[in-house]
């Protein structure tokens, strides 16, 4: 039994990691999980009904 579960575990690690699907124009925007500043809303869902410009940035 141990051997089977070990080989299953090995098979699982040998499987290539699934490629995450990328959002395309036309899709419903997936939620952005995180800690929100300067906002009463803390999810994209709470901003529904508004036009939103997402800006991915870094301070550097």
């Amino acid at each position: 039994m141990k051997l089977i579960s070990l080989s299953l575990a090995l098979a699982a690690t040998l499987q290539p990691a699934p490629v995450a699907e990328i959002v395309q124009v036309g899709d419903l925007a997936p939620e952005i999980e995180g800690e929100w500043f300067l906002s009463e809303a803390n999810t994209l869902g709470a901003l529904r009904g508004r036009v939103v410009l997402l800006d991915f940035w870094r301070t550097w």
Partner: peptide
Amino acid sequence: FPSGALLDAKGRVV
């Protein structure tokens, strides 16, 4: 960076 996405009122990427 930076990269942007514009969402309409329904939360759809436009």
